[in-house]
Nucleic acid binder design. Structure first.
Lengths: 109, 109
DNA sequence: CGAATATTTCGATGAATATCGAAAGGAAGT
DNA sequence: ACTTCCTTTCGATATTCATCGAAATATTCG
């Protein structure tokens, strides 16, 4: 993952409602939840919810599949992991502050 | 960290310029960089830069200290780690998709 | 096909954010 | 005190985002 794809993903999560929404999908697991179930659980108007789900999907954090008349949204765990890895490796190097100082001086990888 | 503090932090990073800015601070390490140095390095107008630095600081991702007439900004590594931990523990549980499904069914912690 | 259900798209409005020049606020040096 | 330097705050504009009702689309069932 690079910053071009990390920025939309971060933006998608940088919203109270969407973060709650994504958490609900994580809790639901790979089976996911229908849009209606989410709307009911979080008490969000359908059109608003659709907007948020669209953003999450566009950010690559969720997948959608159709089941009958329902659309099932599920968290994309690999994508989430990739985002976290990006933050760890590209932003914080997965190391402690002291070591980062050393890296900045070219004393480590 | 809870969602109340995670959202502003995510929002602060969810911007191409600010992400680059934060990365520069990470590379610089605990010593940080002066606002002027950053403005020069990233070629951002002072007033714009100040705006972005303010957001990062308000999100708790950076610290500021004064050194002479310069203001030195530094990445707050503990805060960044807290954010990543929040994403891991509160969003993805630090586990794999299959296990998350089990958690959703109450079969794990 | 027609009715019912589930969700999205459209459209309009208000709020928040990004941008950056110009002016103002502090700190250091003379 | 005056000037210089560094940075922020102000102010104005343009863009993007959030919200949600109403209408449109897709699917199933009778």
């Amino acid at each position: 993952m690079d910053s071009t794809s990390a920025v939309p993903a971060l933006a998608a999560l940088a919203h109270e409602r969407r973060l709650a929404l994504f958490r609900a999908l994580v809790v639901a697991g790979p089976d996911g939840l229908s849009a209606g179930a989410i709307a009911h659980a979080l008490d969000v108007p359908p059109s608003s919810l659709s907007h948020h789900l669209g953003l999450l999907e566009q950010a690559g954090l969720t997948t959608v599949r159709r089941a009958g008349r329902s659309l099932i949204y599920a968290a994309d765990f690999a994508a989430m992991r990739a985002l976290i890895d990006f933050l760890l490796l590209d932003c914080c190097r997965g190391i402690e502050p002291e070591q980062i100082g050393a890296c900045a001086k070219g004393e480590c990888a």
